[in-house]
Write a protein that binds this DNA or RNA. Structure first.
Lengths: 244, 244
DNA sequence: CGAGTACTTGACCCAGATCAAGCCATGTGG
DNA sequence: CCACATGGCTTGATCTGGGTCAAGTACTCG
């Protein structure tokens, strides 16, 4: 019920304060880095955007759906993923508030992966054609969009490196809970299976490494509840992949 | 000397015919998919671009250099790469004619990796600010740039998958020599070490798999000279990663 | 409270890394 | 024109990180 409260607040005021979300501590931190940097006001003025509410596991779009809009996560969280010919899922990314979904659909005009809510979520639909038109009139928007895509590109390339399992998990933890101060607990919205799949590891490996990190006093964790104990320790482990 | 001839031709006429490059058969095929789709005429009209000639191993830019322009490969080939704290190279991509370099510099205004010529090459420097300005006046250019970035994003994400060594190598061969008809020999401009690094494999593994492919009649290869024998056979091996 | 699902832990195995020669082409000096 | 370096490529032997298989154990929800 707390989460419902949080969501409605986020819906009415996308640029929220730094105040933490009650239910998990993780939902809204990303909004601080304002969605499309400083162009958001411009967007909301010119854009015929609409809000969508998704229930847990509800799909936002499917692969091969025609691409017509980008989606900005307002609250909650989603994952984007593919399913290969054998039916195996392949998680491409997790998306928290402030994150932009659908960039991969631009090239061919249809989405290249599925997207679904990990929990009850709200997203803002921004028609792409309108967005392109707005780039002409709204100063800075075009540059902001390019910056955003550039960032996604860098992130994807980083993920492609051949890092050890421990490096990957440490990086994931820092990325996901890294904004919070040490000790603040976070409730991860996704199961271990998804984390493992995303990091190209086996579920068991993620489990083992989490256990090991806890034994070494780097994190506190019980199931999906997780908090950082020793940020620098994690950084040392993640270091190679952070140097990119 | 043949390669010199080819280069000067490419310089004076960026949109070349499908005719193969004499020296290697690979250099110019990518230009067929015209650089920024159909916007190139528009660009060359409005853009104060300049040509750069690079000799083999000569750097185009270094990581942390200020970002001010994108580079379009005209002839030859380059690699982009990072060097981690231990001095290990990490190849991020190979770039053939038609390919756009520097997209990763947009986000923070400085380049995020090094780029250097694999052989004598020519690139076209396109100041980014001017490019953004042109997006307003040149119809289709903005969309073309976004498409280009979207494609790079998809490619990077694909590379991040956890594919077997054989899948990776097969995909690499199809990507690199795939445009040519079977049997046409290609001279790869990069050493095995770079291929291996790019695919996150050991040099020896790439070597072994190449040997295996040759034994199975899928390719012909002696050193850097390589040609495809059985395209469908390669596709079957690469299949999982192509399904994305 | 029972059933199903998520998570953890242990034992074993394998793809691919690493280590170590050899091989072949190109270049260099005698 | 021939030793003989030099660096890239190939091949073989061995090792290991993390996957797979198989049991538990602990939440969660009806």
């Amino acid at each position: 019920m707390l989460s419902i409260d949080t969501q409605s607040r986020a819906v009415s005021a996308p640029r929220v304060s730094q105040a933490q979300c009650h239910s998990c501590g993780l939902r809204e931190q990303c909004l601080v880095a304002t969605a499309l940097n400083d162009s958001e006001d411009g967007i909301s003025r010119g854009l015929r955007s609409s809000r969508l509410r998704l229930k847990q596991t509800e799909p936002l779009y499917w692969r091969d759906d025609g691409f017509s809009a980008l989606f900005l996560v307002v609250s909650g969280s989603l994952k984007s993923y593919n399913v290969d010919l054998d039916g195996n899922e392949r998680v491409r990314g997790f998306h928290f508030p402030g994150s932009l979904l659908g960039l991969d659909g631009i090239e061919r005009g249809r989405h290249r992966c599925h997207a679904a809510a990990l929990e009850d979520s709200v997203v803002c639909r921004m028609p792409f054609e309108q967005l392109l038109g707005l780039c002409v009139s709204v100063s800075g928007l075009q540059a902001a969009l390019f910056r955003r895509m550039s960032r996604e590109l860098i992130h994807a390339e980083t993920l492609a490196g051949d890092y050890s399992a421990a490096e990957r998990v440490a990086t994931f933890i820092l990325e996901t809970a890294g904004e919070l101060r040490d000790g603040t607990p976070v409730k991860l919205p996704m199961p271990r299976r998804d984390i493992a799949n995303y990091l190209r590891l086996a579920t068991e490996t993620v489990s083992r490494i989490m256990t090991d990190f806890r034994a070494r006093g780097l994190i506190e964790c019980r199931g999906r509840q997780i908090s950082i104990r020793d940020r620098d320790g994690l950084r040392v482990i993640a270091e190679p992949s952070l140097s990119n």
